[in-house]
């Protein structure tokens, strides 16, 4: 089973990289970009075949390592 973890900065946490991306897009003429947020995607190959167990396991991975929950939120997708 594969899992896709998306880690994003929480709403309200200043994202200077996202701001720079939005400003760069505006400079390129994409005037409709009101804002941008940058995050990261982590793909995992898992031995676990049971979706519930896999989800619980990945959730623990997120809390212990993949995300810093002080500033980041995460979303888990199983494929």
């Amino acid at each position: 089973m594969r899992a896709k973890v998306t880690v994003m900065l929480k709403t309200g946490v200043l994202d200077p990289q996202g701001k720079a991306i939005a400003a760069a897009l505006n400079t390129l003429g994409f005037a409709g970009v009101g804002g941008a947020r940058q995050g990261k995607v982590i793909e995992l190959d898992l031995a676990e075949a049971d979706p519930d167990k896999a989800h619980a396991e990945v959730d623990e991975m997120c809390r212990r390592l993949l995300a810093n929950t002080v500033i980041e939120s995460y979303a888990i997708e199983l494929e």
Binding site: V13, L14, P16, V70
Partner: peptide
């Protein structure tokens, strides 16, 4: 130390990148 939970908070990317 912040990542280990020995101190609160986090050190983020500098304001001016």
């Amino acid at each position: 130390l912040t990542e280990a939970g020995l101190l609160p908070g986090v050190l983020m990317r500098n304001r001016d990148l």
